[in-house]
Amino acid sequence: MQQTAVVETGVGAQAEPARNVKVSAENCSVFYGDKQALFDVNLDIMANEVTALIGPSGCGKSTFLRCINRMNDTIDICRVSGRLMLENDDIYDPALDVVHLRARIGMVFQKPNPFPTSIYQNIAYGPSIHGLVASKSDLDEIVERSLRRAALWEEVKDRLDQPGTGLSGGQQQRLCIARAIAVQPEVILMDEPCSALDPIATARIEELIDELRQNFTIVIVTHSMQQAARVSQRTAFFHLGVLVEHGETDQIFTNPAHDKTRDYLTGRFG
């Protein structure tokens, strides 16, 4: 305990002045029971950028993403080693409040999963459990602002009291994004947010992600190379649980350092 604390401060002091790193992973390994799913991942995620995680199915993208907000805690057999930092806080510090962490790191899932309550309540839930609002009018304002930011306000403003599950898939996903934004997180994790959507809905969400970048740090898992190229500033390529390479998206796509990355990008395997 004492030792880790000393090491932590050393690393924090080292990483801080360098660049505007929001989340950093150091030697992050993940095990599901005896099976290792991630091998010593070292990755810095920059503030106010979109970082895309790409790689073939089963390479550990979701696993890495779910480490960042400790969603892996909900899987009994899952064990994480190494260190993950959110700015200067150790994400896996036993003293850290997971509830508070998840308020700072929001998540949007692959399948839109609105609560079977009204649109309004879907958005209002997060702020109310975190005590972010004092009055009903504050809450109304947060709901409107979040929906506007998620480019959904115009479509639903007349039916806020209707169930969120009654919206179309694309609208539901934007509702989930609005729900995540409403808590005012610093980082938003998105696990294949467009995989259940048609191209038009996808385009809207991509636009949205680009706008959200100004206020949030975004990590997105995607299977679409075009999407990664369109929305992200940095890309990380995973293969069989190993972070093969990461860097500026332009550089990864035009001039990858590894053959594996090149092969994957050109569709030679996957």
Binding site: N69, M71, T74, V99, H100, L101, R102, A103, G106, M107, F109, K111, N113, P114, F115, P116, Y125, G126, I129, H130, C176, R179, A180, V183
Partner: peptide, 15 residues
């Protein structure tokens, strides 16, 4: 109750 609802709640920071 679908696991996705549980995840949604936990992901928002519900205990």
């Amino acid at each position: 109750v679908p696991p996705s609802i549980r995840e949604a709640a936990l992901g928002l920071g519900a205990s």
